[in-house]
């Protein structure tokens, strides 16, 4: 049949366009080209490097948010920014700028992440509070602790940590490589592990998951715990990356952690995720800000345009 044959070469492209991450990734490339064009070709790789550096933090927090959202309608973690600031402050504070206490600070951040996730779970499961309210409340508590603690304490990272945060391997930031590795593990976990399968089944149809004999409780718990840990580690590294913790260092992340998940092609109502899309969306969002900065657009207009672009990509990718 000739007509079908004529269409055959297009088929892979069409299939590509149906991938959930396609629009975010394409958008990221386009915006990057625009940035490069606006700067007349200078600093193309440097821009990409910086985007990868900052984008990394979106990706890490997005990974946690993605797991939580995957667990099904209503699930969301709004404590991420508070978790980041808390872990950043307390981690830097415990180390007190000393290289020798690096491991200690790292462990503290990790433990705080677990504790934060557990607190969210306690409110959601034991007290049956909707996740949106439970995580917001838990976040408020974390924020208060941070504010109380932040008075008169140093929040500078130890020199060794600062070096590590800013280190590059060739053109790539070291932390981006770390996040890439983490993403690969998560992608594999979601597609090929009992945990991933259970979480996605729970997100699509909780009743069917129970009747299929899956143990959904532990998977649901793991999603929130991992989200807490990822947020805490992102906060720890962000504090180091930006030369010290500050109270408002993570305020972007409430919206961004959700935006990268949704823009990246994961399903808002749960049950389907895309780790690749998380990277595309993170780079896109960072590069948009860069582009608008290059064009010296005012801060207010920048927010408006960022919002419009998010809506545009969501509308294009459709069917959610």
């Amino acid at each position: 049949m000739p007509p079908e044959r004529a269409e055959a070469p297009h088929a892979p492209l069409i299939r590509l366009a149906r991938r959930p991450w396609f629009y975010a990734a394409t958008g990221a490339v386009l915006v990057w080209l625009l940035v490069v064009a606006s700067a007349e070709g200078r600093g193309a790789w440097a821009t990409l490097g910086t985007a990868l550096g900052f984008g990394t933090f979106y990706v890490i927090t997005g990974l946690g948010q993605m797991l939580v959202i995957a667990a099904g309608p209503g699930n969301i973690d709004l404590s991420i920014p508070s978790m980041m600031t808390l872990a950043g402050y307390l981690g830097m504070g415990l180390m007190g700028g000393e290289n020798g206490r690096l491991a200690l600070g790292f462990l503290l951040a990790f433990g705080l992440g677990l504790a934060g996730g557990a607190a969210n779970l306690l409110l959601i499961r034991l007290f049956a509070i909707p996740p949106m309210i439970a995580t917001l409340a838990a976040g408020l508590v974390m924020q208060s602790v941070t504010i109380a603690y932040s008075r008169g304490s140093t929040a500078k990272p130890p020199p060794l940590l600062l070096d590590a945060a800013l280190a590059h391997l060739g053109p790539l930031p070291l932390i981006a490589l770390g996040a890439l590795l983490l993403s690969a593990v998560m992608a594999l976990l979601m597609s090929r592990s009992v945990f991933g399968r259970t979480l996605l089944a729970l997100g699509q149809n909780a009743r069917a998951a129970y009747l299929a004999g899956l143990r959904t409780g532990p998977a649901h718990a793991a999603a929130y715990l991992l989200s807490g840990v990822f947020a805490a580690l992102a906060g720890f590294w962000l504090a180091a990356y930006s030369g010290g913790a500050s109270l408002n260092m993570a305020e972007d992340f409430l919206l961004m952690s959700i935006a990268v998940v949704v823009l990246g092609g994961s399903r808002v109502s749960g049950g389907a995720v895309s780790v690749g899309g998380l990277w595309g969306a993170s780079l896109l969002l960072y590069l948009i800000v860069t582009l608008l900065n290059v064009w010296t657009v005012s801060a207010g207009l920048r927010y408006v345009l960022t919002g419009l672009i998010i809506l545009l990509v969501l509308g294009l990718s459709g069917e959610r």
């Binding site: 592990s193 009992v194 399968r197 996605l200 089944a201 699509q204 149809n205 069917a208 299929a212 004999g213």
Partner: peptide, 30 residues
């Protein structure tokens, strides 16, 4: 309401009932 996972393929819908039995250290063989 109680059976189908609508986003999955026939294969994933079929094997989901036994993933806990065929796992090795929590991982599944494609």
């Amino acid at each position: 309401r109680e059976g189908v996972f609508p986003l999955w393929t026939v294969g994933h819908n079929l094997t989901v009932g036994l993933i806990r039995r065929i796992q090795r250290w929590g991982w599944l063989s494609a």
